[in-house]
Design a protein around this nucleic acid. Structure first.
Lengths: 142, 142
DNA sequence: AAATTTGCTTGCTAAATGCAAGTACAAATA
DNA sequence: TATTTGTACTTGCATTTAGCAAGCAAATTT
């Protein structure tokens, strides 16, 4: 893929090389909030990602240490994708995107309420979700 | 361009339609921290954006209300690009990207120090930079 | 054993990107 | 006044990436 293609020393540019496209953050969103964790789960998301693009993005995110791919406990045909701690650390940034979007665009009412809650104490919200995600991580291990 | 191409009702997906590519946020970075404000300034950035891509990104960001294009006070041949309030509001998100990057990658020492400062009191940092950017906005008007 | 599901891969086509060159206008210099 | 330089683009063309449909092997279900 786009491995080792550092465009500059800027950390922002480096970060965009990891998730700066139209799809990667949507996969991460699905892992964070959508209770999705398999290839087919991601395929079924509203945006309609193409199957080859999904495969390539999953590979890229895994190579960059944002997600990890493990055996699915229910079936040998399936894989289970989950966020690594590095991936979970993207939560504050994603939260800020939602907050920005809330300020400048229309918003589903239910999400609006959640964002309002989150804004009241960002750190608390981040810690809470992070804890939930890390719990989910460990509970399925082995 | 990719106008009116809403892929879903998700605000994250909508935001990615505005700045979810490898270049848009770099232009915004240059406007926020790089003291850059003309076409040629952006062209000269380290990442080496192609001139047609730059033109198309500037157009897209303007159409989406993130930047605005005005006459340059020094020369009729130049234009001056600047962030709108909506564009300035992207600062918290960009800050979180820097923080994430700082946690998981190497970092130029000087930037590292700035980020350490910013993390101490995020709100304060955002307010300070926002104020500076808004001042810059008004001081050149007329 | 046959049909279905899962996580992909493979073609093929359309769109986006990147580079080099060119254009039109403005300002500065000779 | 003529020429050169700089600015903001546009155009053309080759390369890369994206998107859709179909296929495929292994595993699971019927």
């Amino acid at each position: 893929m786009e491995l080792n293609k550092k465009r500059s020393d800027c950390p922002l540019s480096g970060s965009l090389d990891v998730f700066g496209d139209k799809w990667s953050l949507l996969i991460i969103r699905d892992l964070m909030f959508g209770n999705k964790c398999t290839y087919n789960d991601f395929l079924k998301s509203d945006e309609g990602i193409a199957t080859n693009i999904l495969a390539s993005r999953l590979k890229g995110l895994e190579e960059n240490g944002v997600i990890e791919k493990t055996a699915h406990p229910d079936s040998k045909a399936k894989f289970l994708y989950r966020l690594t701690p590095k991936g979970i650390d993207l939560l504050p940034m994603i939260m800020e995107i939602y907050i920005w979007s809330d300020k400048h665009y229309e918003m589903p009412a239910e999400l609006k309420a959640t964002i309002k809650e989150a804004k009241k104490d960002k750190d608390k919200f981040v810690k809470q979700i992070t804890k939930e995600l890390k719990t989910k991580m460990t509970e399925k291990k082995q």
